[in-house]
Design a protein around this nucleic acid. Structure first.
Length: 205
DNA sequence: GCTGCGATTGACT
DNA sequence: GTCAATCGCAGCT
């Protein structure tokens, strides 16, 4: 494991390079209640303007998506379906707007606090399985969008060398072919905390 | 100004 | 397996 420093250099590349490198990384978030750490087991890459119709940045910056156009290594959080918050790591030079969506992970520290946030009856492996669940387990709020992941209350530890990963179709993306047209979902093979694949309800064949 | 829809989840049949 | 909940944003009138 290294500190978040190298993240700065790492995130100057394309989301397609950064996404697999983030697998196995441990993201920590500290609040007055305590610290929760999640080891990332599943991520998804999103590119910028004109490159990726599934990306929020596809049509250019808006107040919501502006953090995606900001410096790399920062957080982009957005509100979805009227009730869920999902988090991305911005990983492109200023103005490029590519990012990596954190889809699932394994809670490796702060288990009790994560259980408190997610509910006592939730199995441990489900605590951070799914993008909105991961956000809740970490206690990240919408107003933290744009914050620097290399600064407190955050910490991001990267694996010393990239782990073996597998690529697959993106989930939850509508349009022709659904997410299958963009195989930019990366997982750690064999992990039990990888979220079940679900095609977008509106995907078109 | 108004309408439709989404990078989802959890509850229910 | 199916379905409702819920709201900000993009696109259109």
């Amino acid at each position: 494991m290294t500190t978040a420093g190298p993240l700065r250099a790492l995130t100057s590349g394309s989301a397609l390079e950064v996404a697999p490198a983030l697998l196995g990384a441990v993201l920590s978030h500290t609040t007055p209640e305590g610290t929760v750490s999640v080891r990332l087991t599943e991520v998804e890459a999103y590119l910028g303007v004109g490159e990726d119709p599934g990306s929020h940045a596809h049509r250019g910056p808006t107040p919501r998506t502006s953090p995606m156009f900001g410096p790399p290594g920062h957080l982009y959080a957005y509100f979805s379906y009227g009730m869920h918050v999902c988090v991305n790591v911005v990983c492109s030079p200023v103005g490029t707007a590519s990012a990596v969506l954190l889809r699932a992970g394994e809670v490796v520290a702060g288990l009790e606090l994560a259980r408190l946030r997610r509910g006592e009856r939730v199995p441990d492996r489900d605590l951070a399985r799914g993008p909105a669940r991961l956000t809740v387990a970490l206690g990240i709020a919408l107003d933290q969008s744009g914050d620097d992941l290399a600064e407190p209350p955050f910490d991001l530890l990267l694996p010393e060398r990239p782990l073996a990963s597998a690529a697959g179709p993106r989930t939850g993306v509508s349009g022709v072919g659904g997410g299958a047209a963009y195989p930019w979902r990366f997982v750690l093979p064999g992990e039990t905390t990888v979220s079940p694949y679900r095609r977008s309800p509106r995907a078109v064949d």
